Simulated scan of single mutants.
Amino acid sequence: MKKFLDDADTAVADALAGLAFARPDLKVDQELRIVTRAGAVRPGKVGLVSGGGSGHEPLHSGYVGTGMLDAACAGEIFSSPTPDRILAATKAVSAGAGVVHIVKNYTGDNLNFDMAAELARDEGLEVEKVLVDDDVAVRDSTWTAGRRGTGATVIVEKAAGARAEEGGDLKAVADIGRRVNAASRSFAVALGACTTPAAGRPGFELAEDEIEIGVGIHGEPGRARGPMRPARALVADMLDAVLEELPASDDPVIALVSGLGATPLLELYVVYRHVAEELDRRGVRIARNLVGNYVTSLDMAGASITLCRADAELLRLWDAPVDTPALRWG
């Protein structure tokens, strides 16, 4: 294993320390592994908290800032943050209007965020949960009950963050997050496994001409293993899976092509080319897009495709100003 690390056991803490140096507009609590916006919370604003296992950067700390999250909780690599840390983040961003938890659908995240929400309610805070379950590759596994939460998390955080920024109340912020999730579907393919620092070796093995079809962002198995094929054919199959479950609508889509950590941008643009051409052939219009590393899996080679049906309101929220380490416009 060759990685830029001092010690595998301190990788998450060391990365958060680096984030603190790089972004003085963020406050990093090294002890609790919480990243919040620097400065006082805005009275009356709904707070947004998300988090999960580290290793998916820029998810979630990379989306803390104006127009998106107020706080992110970093667990150990591929492990959920503990309830006490989620509670601390919830209290830190509470400004009298309630707090929304945005939670990817994994068993540990669900349990720990639910427990933190109950503890927060015991202290008089209002908490709503938005569950993200967009991955169509598998339904029910050792990791989840139902679909896994993946790329749509970025779109949920962006839309909910914009609604909170403009003064939406707790219900309005949670509702837009749930609506985005319901309108989104994702699918990923891995060309090679990731290596966690603690393990020091790839999480699974693929033959030279083999790929994992429908892989999860922790390296969980997908639908099948199959032979490597040209990008055009892979993208067509990925879109078949996504469009089969994407809600039917005349609305255009927001298209997200995310690398899984080790895929060059050159290849991601090849993928996006075929996404754009294939969707045009199928009569689906792309209104907005993102291409890059937005939801990753350490150093996994591969890519995910996320489509979200976007009406005029969602496009307005997507276009609203945002200033975070990973997204910035407006």
Rank of each mutant, 00 (worst) to 15 (best):
W143Q: 14
W143R: 13
T144R: 09
G146C: 09
G146S: 12
R147P: 03
R148G: 09
R148D: 12
R148Y: 13
G149P: 04
G151W: 02
G151V: 08
A152V: 02
T153I: 07
V154M: 11
I155T: 15
I155H: 07
I155Y: 00
V156C: 08
V156Q: 06
E157F: 03
E157W: 03
K158S: 06
K158M: 09
K158Y: 09
A159G: 06
A159D: 10
A159K: 03
A160V: 03
G161S: 09
A162Y: 06
A162W: 03
R163D: 06
R163L: 15
R163I: 05
A164L: 09
E165R: 09
E165A: 15
E165W: 03
E166K: 09
E166A: 10
E166N: 03
G167V: 10
G167C: 12
G167I: 09
G168N: 07
G168T: 10
G168K: 04
G168I: 10
G168E: 11
G168L: 10
L170Y: 11
L170H: 12
K171S: 10
K171Q: 10
V173L: 09
V173K: 00
A174F: 08
A174G: 12
D175H: 08
D175E: 15
I176K: 04
I176P: 00
G177I: 04
G177V: 06
G177A: 08
R178P: 01
R178Y: 05
R179F: 00
R179T: 12
V180Q: 04
V180N: 02
V180K: 02
V180A: 06
